[in-house]
Simulated assay, not measured.
Amino acid sequence: MTLTLATWNINSVRLREPIVCKLLQEEGPDILCLQECKSPVEKIPTDGFTELGYPYMVARGQKGYNGVAILSRFPIEDVGDKDFARLGHARHVAGRLENGVTIHNFYVPAGGDVPDREVNAKFGQKLDYLTEMRDWMRGDKPQKSILVGDLNIAPREDDVWSHKQLLKVVSHTPVEVEHLGQVMEAGDWSDVTRADIPDGQLYSWWSYRARDWDAADKGRRLDHIWASSDIRNAAHSSRILRSARGWEKPSDHAPVFASFDL
């Protein structure tokens, strides 16, 4: 069985319900993981998703901020969430499919504007969140698992439009990249996207501040799909749907896709 999965920071699922439906209709992933839903779970507009063939959802939400959801064509069991760094935020949810695959959907804190925890508490929270992710994975090694989401870090030099200019910008600083690398190593995760697309500039986020985001193309790859070591060889067909960044009332993120033969 081939399972196709997409991850997308939607930046308000209620505001952008039309483009979520557009993605489901036109691309038809089996699983769609959303971040920054900005909605209590009970107010997520599930009726439209159900009509399009996605009757199953596991989610965590809160009013106006954060929020993660997994939409599925197939039955999916809610297997919990983790509140790393004890922030009280809806930033993680996990679901298990009937074939035993567990999907972890994460929205890692953005970290504010200044990459210094002494003057910016949000940056410290981000690093603490990643540290606790690492420690959890060291103690509970993932098996038959897929980790996706807006991890708010572009780890490679070719994951940003200018490595040199962004070295001191939150999302690409060496300390963040190091922390993310420790999470990956602790869980023995594989970066599915870069396994499939090993070379070249690759972005999933473009700022709203750009007058013409497409022409400027000052992007970052903040959204990721990882696979645990036992299923990494099952992954293929990675892509980023760049065109979605130009849809009507778009998110500033584009959906990232991968398929798995499971």
Rank of each mutant, 00 (worst) to 15 (best):
G53P: 14
V20G: 08
Y54K: 10
W189H: 08
K249P: 14
S237T: 13
W206Y: 09
I146T: 05
P55I: 02
D128A: 15
A235W: 07
S237A: 12
L167A: 10
D113Q: 15
W205Y: 14
T102N: 09
V108F: 00
V183E: 10
K38P: 01
S39A: 12
I31V: 06
Y56T: 08
Y208H: 04
F257N: 01
R134Q: 13
G80F: 14
E27F: 12
G181C: 09
K144Y: 15
I70N: 06
D150I: 08
E248R: 09
H89C: 03
D252R: 03
I31H: 11
L147A: 08
R209Y: 15
V58F: 13
P174T: 06
C33R: 02
R96A: 00
P109S: 01
A235H: 07
V183K: 13
G95Y: 03
T50E: 04
Y203Q: 06
P250T: 00
L147Q: 03
L71P: 01
G111Y: 10
M137C: 10
I231E: 09
E17P: 00
Y208M: 03
G187F: 00
F84W: 07
N66G: 05
D214G: 08
D128N: 14
V170M: 07
N233S: 15
D30A: 05
P29E: 11
W161D: 06
K63H: 10
K63P: 01
Q125K: 03
L166I: 02
E36L: 07
L180K: 00
P142W: 11
S243K: 08
K122W: 02
A121M: 13
P109Y: 02
G111P: 09
R209M: 15
D212E: 14
K43F: 12
W213G: 14
S12I: 05
G149H: 13
Q165L: 06
A121F: 12
W206N: 11
E98T: 04
L147E: 05
V58S: 12
V68E: 01
S228V: 07
E17H: 10
H163A: 08
